[in-house]
Amino acid sequence: MGFKLLSKLLVYLTASIMAIASPLAFSVDSSGEYPTVSEIPVGEVRLYQIADGVWSHIATQSFDGAVYPSNGLIVRDGDELLLIDTAWGAKNTAALLAEIEKQIGLPVTRAVSTHFHDDRVGGVDVLRAAGVATYASPSTRRLAEVEGNEIPTHSLEGLSSSGDAVRFGPVELFYPGAAHSTDNLIVYVPSASVLYGGCAIYELSRTSAGNVADADLAEWPTSIERIQQHYPEAQFVIPGHGLPGGLDLLKHTTNVVKAHTNRSVVE
């Protein structure tokens, strides 16, 4: 069995187990497998329904001669939608809004960016022009300005110390501490036991640490421990890039980060 097929099978099995364990909360999309990078042309966006009122959005972007996937989250909030992270750029984010209108038909009224990198804030200006209120932590807003990236308009308070959590509509926002970046936030959907790890969490097929220019490698494993301790009931975990899975993604990420750190020390 090929690795790609095995990865998709694991996603399907995880979703099936969740649907059985929580039949009222989960209505997993039966329309197909989780979209992969090879299936999404740059400039297009796919939506994948995880649970009743919960979707991931998947886009792709060219970077350094390669094409990478990027995940975000959409959560229903009454007759409105909360968006977590842009679709990595203005063109993708405009396509995301169009796809949401086509498939869901509810307005996106608020959006949260989970850290300051372009795959999370690139497209904020498109959201703002569409009347979406954009939010991020003060740290993310400051770092985005320093980096020359787009800056969300509103500040999220109460997320300055490791372990801080605040309720934001249908989700809980959690600051686990520094990891992929010093400002990275985690998003949890309690009604569906869905954990969105953003770039602080890796997919299972990833074996290298990737972009760690703004990471705190020493603190990252401790931050992941905080996530595990705060959300032990999480059933569906979405990484910032690639295929979702279960809580095993947290341990896998820790292993990859520690291996990278150990290699760096040896070198």
Results as ranks from 00 to 15, higher is better:
L156Y: 00
A94P: 04
Y34D: 07
E44S: 13
G65S: 11
L9K: 14
S155V: 14
L81A: 05
V194L: 09
S155N: 13
G32K: 09
G122Q: 10
G177D: 06
T109H: 10
A129S: 11
A200Y: 04
Y135M: 02
L243N: 15
E203V: 06
G240I: 06
Y231Q: 01
G245H: 02
L204C: 06
V121G: 02
G245C: 05
Q61W: 07
M1P: 00
I186N: 06
T86K: 04
Y12H: 10
I58A: 05
K251L: 11
S22A: 12
S162Y: 11
F116N: 05
T140Y: 05
L96A: 03
S38Y: 12
D52S: 12
Q103Y: 13
E80C: 06
D248S: 11
E150C: 03
A133P: 10
W88R: 01
F174A: 01
I201V: 14
P239T: 01
S22H: 09
G197P: 04
E33G: 12
I104F: 07
A209D: 06
T86M: 00
G53D: 15
V166C: 04
L204P: 05
R46G: 09
T222V: 11
R263W: 10
Y48F: 13
D183F: 02
S30I: 10
G65N: 12
R142G: 10
V146A: 14
G105A: 13
F174L: 09
D77T: 05
D79K: 09
S223G: 02
V187T: 03
Y34V: 09
N184C: 00
G131S: 08
R120W: 02
V257L: 12
L24D: 15
S193R: 14
F63V: 11
L249V: 03
L83V: 09
Q235M: 09
V237P: 01
G197V: 03
T109M: 11
G197K: 00
G72L: 01
V265Y: 12
Y202S: 07
V265L: 12
R142E: 14
G163I: 04
P35S: 08
R167S: 11
R142N: 12
V54I: 08
F26P: 11
L5D: 13
Q61A: 13
S113F: 06
E157H: 11
T114F: 04
Q235D: 12
I58C: 04
E99F: 08
G89Y: 05
A15S: 14
S30V: 13
A15K: 06
Y34Q: 08
L243Q: 15
L81S: 03
Y202G: 05
L185W: 02
L127I: 03
I40V: 15
R110G: 08
F26L: 15
N184W: 00
T14G: 04
H230R: 15
L83P: 00
S38H: 13
P152D: 01
L143H: 06
A259T: 10
A165I: 12
P23Q: 14
F63W: 08
Y68F: 15
V187C: 02
N262W: 10
R128G: 11
N211M: 10
L5F: 13
A15F: 15
R263F: 12
W55N: 02
Y188L: 00
D216A: 07
A25F: 12
A192L: 06
V126P: 02
V166P: 03
N262M: 12
N211I: 08
I74E: 02
S70P: 05
V257P: 01
A144I: 06
H115K: 01
G246A: 08
P107Y: 07
S205F: 09
L24I: 15
L73V: 05
A66S: 13
S193Q: 14
P221G: 09
R141C: 06
F168M: 10
R76D: 06
G242I: 04
Q229R: 13
F236Q: 10
Y231S: 02
D29I: 10
A136W: 03
S16A: 14
I224W: 02
I40S: 07
E101C: 06
P35H: 07
L249Q: 00
E80Y: 06
Y188Q: 00
P239Y: 01
A90R: 10
V28M: 15
I40A: 07
S205H: 09
E39W: 09
L47D: 03
D125G: 10
L97V: 03
V42P: 15
A213K: 12
G105R: 11
S193D: 13
G210V: 06
S7V: 10
C199D: 01
T140I: 05
V237Q: 00
N184D: 06
E39L: 12
A19Q: 15
V75R: 02
S160E: 14
G242D: 06
E219D: 07
P107N: 11
K91C: 07
L81Q: 00
L83Y: 01
P176M: 01
L96M: 08
H57I: 01
V194G: 01
T14C: 11
R167K: 12
P232R: 09
R46P: 04
D164T: 11
T253I: 07
S137F: 02
T153E: 15
L249T: 02
L217F: 07
V237D: 02
S38D: 12
G89D: 04
A19M: 15
E145D: 11
Q235N: 10
L5A: 14
P41R: 12
P244G: 04
L97C: 00
F174Q: 00
T182H: 11
M1Q: 03
R76W: 06
P170L: 05
M1R: 05
K251Y: 12
D77Y: 06
W220I: 03
T153V: 14
A15W: 07
C199I: 02
G123P: 04
A87H: 00
V189P: 00
T60R: 08
L127H: 04
I186S: 03
W88H: 00
R226L: 09
V108A: 07
Y188P: 01
A165E: 11
L217H: 04
M18V: 15
V265W: 11
S22D: 12
A234L: 05
L10I: 15
G122S: 09
V166T: 09
V42A: 15
V67K: 15
Q49I: 08
L249C: 00
S155A: 14
G177N: 02
A200E: 02
Y12S: 10
L217P: 07
G163Y: 05
S162F: 11
P41A: 15
W55K: 00
L47C: 02
V75F: 03
L195D: 00
A66I: 15
G177T: 01
